[in-house]
Design a protein around this nucleic acid. Structure first.
Lengths: 226, 226
DNA sequence: GTAATAGTGTCTTTCAGACAGTATTCA
DNA sequence: TGAATACTGTCTGAAAGACACTATTAC
């Protein structure tokens, strides 16, 4: 607009345009805990993959569009490439090694989110693979998965199910402990786990019946997610 | 090269070029603890600043060059804009708010490093300002400083002088405690501080003499920096 | 009843903070 | 000698792990 024009502004704009620019991508490690498996990550096969071609599995990602927030680009890529919605991506770090993408100069802002496996519609082009037995992934995506796993596990050491991987509604302490054991890939003593988690939980007065043994009380988080 | 040509590769390269690209900048919060002041950050005035113009103080930064690592761009910007060398920048996160830079579409990868104040040559275009009394900074640089301060303080809660802000050579526990108190902006009881830090320190058998009171033993880190 | 699961009492260890005491120097 | 600083002994309280114990259900 006219009244913004000034010698300072023009000098700065000319400088900015001189620089070559990289493509900026977002790639997201969507972590989950499927029935009967440990911590797993969502990988996709590009839609244009050709049988026998050089394509390998990779994390869902896309290029950042003009005026778009990184977190919005993540949501867009997950919706379009994997049909997953309702996430809240968290930024991990930028992967910038030269040559990390053989298509050209691409830096990738890696993201992390976790979601219940039921929210991920599996198709011919999507798979959930255990993080302890990753297949070969495109680019540096295996390194991104490693960074994401460390970050998610650090969260799960701090409090009860911070990513909301439990089903909606109240849950027993055993539900919570089993989930944490699967995310962290380590066992926790039941009594200590209960005592460390209880301050962050509130009772509901309801119980889960029908199983063997003494009915377990159902709890909710003191601080609800979202 | 010819033998890399394939239908897959060509299809992918064409796709990449379709995307508009943002400028990618790096901006670095260089933190230090000057004599007689608390935690401070290095800010610069652009070299082309005009007296009375719209320029304000900002963090040293630059645009990423083709083929360059982000950490190398950081080192380059610090060398050229502030004459500081020998740093090891750490990535914080990407700042990507639309409109954060009125020159155009610029995302910035914020970095952090800490260095002794003696390593920063102060000129007409550089200043050290306390982080608790920041002047108005350009762009979203005040937010970057806030993120950097939180990250550095988290490091200083974990172990003895992780950034190497003490002078080279051995140091007393009091030297170390005073530094931590200035970085964290909070007092620490001398006995508890000593007991928590000692496992990460090793004795030298030497003592600092000449001051009042009982001479203090000089220590080194168990794990040297670098 | 028995097996299974939920939940508690309590002991030990560890660690941080508090506080008082001892040790060694300078003035 | 006294003041200042370095360092240590020891108590308390909080938290985690271990382990045994009680409580309540299905079968």
């Amino acid at each position: 607009v006219a009244d913004n024009a000034s010698p300072y502004r023009d000098a700065r704009r000319r400088t900015l345009d001189e620089y070559p620019r990289p493509s900026v991508a977002v790639d997201t490690a969507v972590l989950t805990v499927p029935e009967g498996a440990g911590l797993s990550v969502l990988v996709t096969l590009p839609k244009d993959a050709v049988r026998g071609g050089p394509h390998r599995w990779r994390l869902p990602g896309t290029f950042l569009h003009p005026g778009e927030l990184l977190s919005d680009a993540v949501l867009r890529s997950l919706r379009e490439k994997a049909g997953v919605t309702g996430l809240r991506p968290r930024q991990l770090r930028v992967f910038d090694a030269p040559g990390r993408d053989d298509r050209g100069w691409v830096v990738s802002v890696a993201h992390l989110d976790a979601v219940r496996a039921e929210s991920i519609p599996l198709t011919e082009h999507t798979r959930l693979v255990p993080v302890e037995a990753l297949p070969a992934l495109d680019f540096d995506h295996a390194e991104i998965v490693g960074t994401a796993v460390v970050a998610l596990r650090a969260d799960y050491r701090r409090g009860p199910d911070p990513a909301g991987l439990l089903p909606a509604g109240p849950f027993t302490v055993r539900d919570l402990r089993t989930l944490h054991e699967r995310v962290l890939d380590e066992m926790h003593p039941a009594d200590t786990f209960r005592r460390t988690m209880l301050p962050a939980l509130r009772t509901t007065g309801e119980f889960r019946r029908g199983a063997r043994g003494k009915p377990a009380e159902l709890y909710r988080r003191v601080i609800e997610l979202d």
